[in-house]
Structure formats: structure tokens, C-alpha cells
Design a binder for these strands. Structure first.
Lengths: 399, 399
DNA sequence: CCGAATAAGTTCACCCTAGAACTAATGCGA
DNA sequence: TCGCATTAGTTCTAGGGTGAACTTATTCGG
């Protein structure tokens, strides 16, 4: 009965009731005290108290390991959803990688596994790997698959978040037109599937566990082999009518510029993605390299790699300036594997941003300036976001 | 007591109470039936009914002229806030124009007056004109200034919506750093002042009375002597941390391009504003012209003017493509005086949009394609939006 | 070591909102 | 012309959320 109750509270059953709102808040944010819940939900302390005693009595909510914050006054007791009450799975379908994270409703990661594939693998291959990775994930867990509350899928290409169908080619031509619900439904029959593109998932991860915690309005700007991003407004990830929001990389700068893999010409992606610099460094070193190798070499002092990364920051700042002029956001979280280069990337990026945007340093007080934060996720941001998709109930596919 | 009550209900007093929400909804949307109010606020019919009988008893809400819609079933009785309960003033501080609209809380425009000035007029001149226009506006009205509930100011340049201070030069160098609250406060002492830039006000007008009625998420794209716009997400106009959101015209396309009046180089505005085409037509005709003249001549069949407008549509589509790639919005309302050219502008605009954006025709079903709608406001959109600013309680300046 | 200050969490009576069941007013078809 | 379908609006009661006042648990200063 426990799980059934949680399931109905997490799905559409009791959206507006205090109990539903409190459970959803706990699901979305992890460990919280009663007072924090009251602030976040806007409910009265008394209401929260009543509901929580009921939830604790029925064992759906338990006390989390209290980390006494150290302030004056009675210390808050942190609460989470009972980990036994259910699990979530996050799946990343990347260009060359499939990742599966298993987590419980108290935000504890139980398992994190990846498989690396050659580019342009087929959906069938993906299904096979996902099946295997999920079996592995449950290996040695005392939690069984019957407690699975939802599955989130982060896809490395444009996907319609309502239907779960892939649009166009994007970076994954073999997936064009694929129907995520149809493909993955059979693996998890009956369990709700949530789906969104990689960038939007990364945004959810940033909002839930990363650099954008507590922010309801921010932009994620991804610098990697492609340039992309996501827009969060009012705590909502903007998807656009066809799931195409946040495609900063495919803004056309010069209609007569070099062709882009998206089909248009002169996209930002052509100038600011790390694809060309990576090729350049491969030519320089005369061997096949990965993006992470270049970053590592640059951090180790290699001047060529350092220059490539600085130039990437410079080019990336152009796109960031665009974001500044369009949104003038409070916060931009810079993500992607280039971020591992730290200040080497961030400094030229910030300088270039300043040059390419409308509102400048001197125009406004420091409190009204956009903050640039590097992402805290090294690599698994998107997949964690897929878990967050479930915990936050974003982007559920219709059955 | 009537007015005092309305004032407190419209300001921060009772935000979340049903009465407050109903009054605010009526203020924002004008005439509505009880059922519509229930749908819009999410309150139960019964609650709405109870509150409305109370509001009618105290004469704060009255029946509006019923326009029987003609469907089956009992016809709805439209209700509005009692026009006697208060007035709002909208002020437009444009580049060469000052406009004042006086309206009552039932959305009836009582007076609409403009004064045309030479560019770069001083704030002091503006104050003088505003004083005069307002005196004129109240002339012959039985409503007095004591019923004034709020003043909205639409400014033709970037303004910080929280402090009311103008940023940088923008299109109005004489206003750089001006403090709207300080300037206009003395004219309306004690009355709350709302403030936002022209484009954001236009967005509010579109949402309240225009092409975006019923939409909570859309983009306004303005093609005029400058290129600009506004972003509405979740019914909220995004302002950005320094009031710089929606400045589509100042996205840098080519960092080495021609200088823009904003200080950067190669902004979209340089390529897509109608400033250069207007100058070209002046050269062609050998006389001083206004934008409206070019549109009129084009509609009258003049080939030169027609070509200029078509070319503007083509250039404007580049920016629209950018909007498409960034937002993939459901709806874009195209505004600005060029829209008067109708299909002559919209057709090349739509074609160019298609070429410059990421998600194309064939990629998605027709239901998932961005709609382009021309604005229905010929010229007074921004000033109506300033009225809407008050009625919707957006962007209130702190006292 | 004790009490003041501070903050978290609980209790309880009252008011208010929601929902069901109702009445009211219209169009449409036989 | 009558009744049925449809939609708008009202009434009433039960249940639930709120806010005030209270209790509990901690830090800090003297």
C-alpha cells in the first residue's frame, strides 16, 4: 500500500493537495526540513506539520542523517522520502555512450554504469545495452524493479517532449524519427517514461544538485563538441513547441558562412564548437585524441592545447553575448567537457562575453550583472538530469 | 471606502485570497463571466459566485454590456470592475513622441493624446508635456485624479524595471541614467508607478488585447526603426536582471561588422532595422520621409518602396530565425510600424525565417510549427501596454 | 551554569473553499 | 409549443488549511 500511495501522489492524482505538493517537493529537492518545505510550497507551517506527521506515521517519509547546521535556535530535522518507497532510473542516450543511473527517491545514487559505443549505433543496439546495464544496476541492490516509479531518458538529439519522438537528424541520424516511448516502453511496461534532450536534462541536474540550486531562472550554455544549452524560466525548462528551444549552437550568424551539420550555414556551432580545435590538435600531435585529452594536456602546461581552449573560450563568448542580449539572465551555468579546463576557459569566455553583449560592466551596478558559473558536473550531468526528470516530474510522455 | 478597498486588493494586500485573485483577474482581463473567472483563477465556481455577489453588493463589480455569444445554454453575464472605481494612466516616452492614455479599470479608454517632439528632447521637456497631456486627458472626464490607481510608463530605451533607472544611451542618450521614479513621482505623488521598456509594454498589450490573447508563452518581435522584442514565459514578461532581456536587435552577428549605435559592432539591428532603408528612400525621393510614408507608398504600388520593405522582411527573418533556434516558440507576434505593410512584409519574413531557423517545415507536423502573427496594434501598442502594466500589476517600482 | 534569544515544530479553534446538488436561462428539434 | 440538452450561476454543508499561541531544542553571553 505504501508504494501505491506514493505512486499516486507522485503522478497526477493529487496535484494541488498539500500532501501531493509536499511529496513532490521532497521528491524534487531531496532532504528538507519542515520549515523549508513550508517556505518552498507556500503552505502554512501548521499544514506541513500535520501532513508530515501523517506521512511519517505511514512510513513514507523518514528522517535523514541530520547535519546540524550550527546556527542558533532549535536545529531542523531533515526529512526525505523513504528510500524504500521507490527507485528511479535515468538513462542517457549519448552520441557514443549509454549511461544508466539507478537512484532512490531520497536522491541517493545506487548505481551508475556506462557503456561506450561507436557513433551511429542503432536504436536496437541501444535497447540491448540498456537492458543489460539495468540488469547490472539492480545487481546487488535490495531494491527490486517492482518499486520503480519512473524512467527518465536524456537524448543527445532533438526530441519532442510530449510524444517522445525524435525530430530530424541532429547529431544522431540513426535515431531520426525514433519513438522513445515505443522503443523503451516494453522494457519498463507500465512505468511512466519521461524524456527530454541532453541539454534540458543537464539544466534539471544543475537546478536540482548543481550550480543553479535555488534558482528558478537561468540559462545553461554547453561548450563541448557541439554548442547548445537550455532555458529555465520560473522553474520550468522551456522546451519550445517542437522541443527545439535552447539550440544556441544553431543560431545563424552568417547565412553565407560555412555549412553546418544542421543543414544551415554559418551557425554559431561552426565557429564555437570544439570539433575543429580537436581536429587541429590531432593534426598537431599526429594521433587520435578525445576532448578530455586536450583539456588534460592544457592543464599540464601544453601551450598548443592551452591556446586552443582559450580560443574556444573566445569563440564561445560570442554565443554567450547573444544569450546576454536576448535574456540578460541572472545566472548562466557553463557546462560541457570544456569546463574542466577551469579558468583557462572561463576567463577568455567572460571577457569575450563582455565584448559581445549589450549590457556592459559600467552600465549597471554589480548586483545587476549576469553571473557566470561553471557547472559542477564533470560528465554525468545529463544522466543525473534524467533521474531529476522523474523526481521533478518534468516532461512525462503520455501513455 | 470603495476605492480604498480596490486599491488594497490590487496592490500587495491580499495576493492569494480568492477576492484578491478575482479582482486582479478582472483588472488584467477586462470583462469576464463568472465561469471564465473560475477557469482562469482555478477557483471553484461556488467560491467565485460567493465572492462576486459580495463584490457586486459593494458595487466594486458591475455587469458589462452583455454581448450574447449565441451558443446554446444560459448566456453568461459579463462582469467588469466598476469603471467608477478607478482610473489608470499609461505614458509612452518614445524617441520623438510622448503619448498619454487614460483608461478606467474596466479597460475603457477614456482619452488618448500624443505630442510629437524633436529627437533628443530632455527629461524636463518630457515632464512638462506629460503634465499638460494629463491635464488635457482629465478635461471633460467626470473621473477625477483622486481615483488614479497607478501610472504605467513605457520607455523607448533600456530601463531597470526594479529601480526605474535608465541604462546607458540606447536610442535616447539624453535620458541615460535618468530615474523615472524621481522624475515622475512628483507628478503623481503617492500613486504607484510601473515602468518598463517599450517592447515589454507592447508584449503586455498583445497579451491583454492583441494577437497573443490567451497565450502565456510567446515572443514579440519588433521591426521598426530599431529591431527589438520581448519574451513572455508563463504569463510573465521576462525582464532580465538589468532590464536587458529581449534585445534581439543587439545580438552581435559579426564582431567585425559595421558599428552599431549601441557601441558594439555588427548587431542584427545594423542589418535589419529600417533606418538605412528609410534613408535610402529619402535619397530616392529627394525629401524627408517617415517610415509610415514608405509603407503607404509601397501599398500604393511604388516598386522602390515595395522592394525596400521586402528586403526588410528578408533581413528581419534572420533575427526571427535566431528567435526560432533559441526559443522554438509557439507564437511570435510581429510588431512595429513595418507590419502595416501586411503580406508584403510577412511573406518574405516567413520565408527568410524558415531558411534561418533550425526546425524546418518538414521536420515536424504542422501543429508543432511556430505561428507568426502580425500585431493588431497600429501604433499605440506600447502605450496601451503601459496601461496594461498597471492593470496587470507588472513591474511596479519600489517606493 | 543559567537565562535570554532564536529558530523549529506542534496544537487547536475558526473561517473559508470546494464539491455536489440544485435552479436558471437559453437553443434546438420534433 | 413543449421538452430536452446545454451551459451559467447559486446554495449549503463538510472538511481542511490557516494563523495565533504554544512548546521544544539549541546557541550565546554574562
Amino acid at each position: 500500500m505504501n508504494k501505491i500511495e506514493l505512486k499516486s501522489l507522485l503522478t497526477d492524482g493529487a496535484l494541488a493537495t498539500p500532501t501531493g505538493r509536499i511529496v513532490r517537493t521532497l521528491s524534487a529537492r531531496g532532504a528538507l526540513s519542515a520549515t523549508q518545505i513550508a517556505r518552498l510550497t507556500g503552505l502554512a507551517k501548521s499544514t506541513v506539520s500535520t501532513v508530515l506527521t501523517e506521512l511519517r506515521r505511514s512510513d513514507m517519509v523518514v528522517e535523514a542523517g541530520s547535519e546540524s547546521a550550527g546556527g542558533v535556535g532549535r536545529p531542523a530535522t531533515a526529512l526525505t522520502l523513504n528510500p524504500k518507497a521507490g527507485t528511479c532510473i535515468g538513462i542517457l542516450i549519448g552520441q557514443t555512450e549509454i549511461q544508466v543511473i539507478l537512484a532512490d527517491v531520497s536522491h541517493t545514487v545506487l548505481s551508475d554504469r556506462s557503456a561506450y559505443l561507436a557513433p551511429d549505433y542503432s536504436p536496437d543496439t541501444a535497447i540491448e545495452y540498456v537492458r543489460k546495464l539495468i540488469a547490472d544496476a539492480y545487481q546487488g541492490q535490495w531494491q527490486g524493479r517492482e518499486g520503480l516509479l519512473g524512467v527518465g531518458i536524456a537524448v543527445g538529439g532533438p526530441v519532442n517532449p510530449v510524444t517522445g519522438k525524435m525530430l530530424r537528424a541532429g547529431g544522431m541520424p540513426t535515431w531520426a524519427g525514433a519513438d522513445m516511448r515505443e522503443l523503451f516502453g516494453p522494457i519498463f511496461d507500465g512505468v511512466p517514461i519521461f524524456c527530454d534532450n541532453e541539454s534540458n536534462c543537464a539544466a534539471i541536474a544543475e537546478m536540482t544538485w548543481g550550480a543553479a540550486q535555488g534558482h528558478d531562472d537561468f540559462i545553461v550554455y554547453t561548450l563541448d563538441l557541439g554548442v547548445g544549452g537550455a532555458i529555465v524560466s520560473g522553474g520550468r525548462v522551456l522546451r519550445g513547441i517542437a522541443g527545439g528551444a535552447g539550440e544556441f549552437g544553431h543560431v545563424v550568424l552568417d547565412p553565407n558562412g560555412p555549412p553546418c551539420r544542421c543543414g544551415n550555414r554559418g551557425c554559431l556551432d561552426v565557429y564555437a564548437s570544439f570539433r575543429e580545435p580537436l581536429a587541429e590538435s590531432e593534426r598537431h600531435f599526429g594521433r587520435s585524441m578525445r576532448l578530455a585529452d586536450v583539456v588534460e594536456l592544457a592543464l599540464g602546461g601544453d601551450a598548443t592545447c592551452r591556446a586552443l581552449i582559450e580560443r574556444a573560450g573566445e569563440a564561445g563568448g560570442h554565443g554567450l553575448g547573444l544569450i546576454g542580449s536576448v535574456f540578460n539572465p541572472t545566472l548562466v551555468v557553463v557546462s560541457g567537457r570544456l569546463v574542466a579546463a577551469g579558468d583557462m576557459l572561463m576567463r577568455p569566455l567572460a571577457e569575450s562575453f563582455e565584448r559581445h553583449t549589450l549590457v556592459k560592466h559600467g552600465d549597471v551596478p554589480d548586483t545587476a550583472r549576469t553571473i557566470l558559473s561553471p557547472s559542477r558536473f564533470s560528465d554525468n550531468g545529463a544522466c543525473m538530469g534524467a533521474v531529476g526528470l522523474v523526481l521533478r516530474h518534468h516532461g512525462r510522455l503520455l501513455n
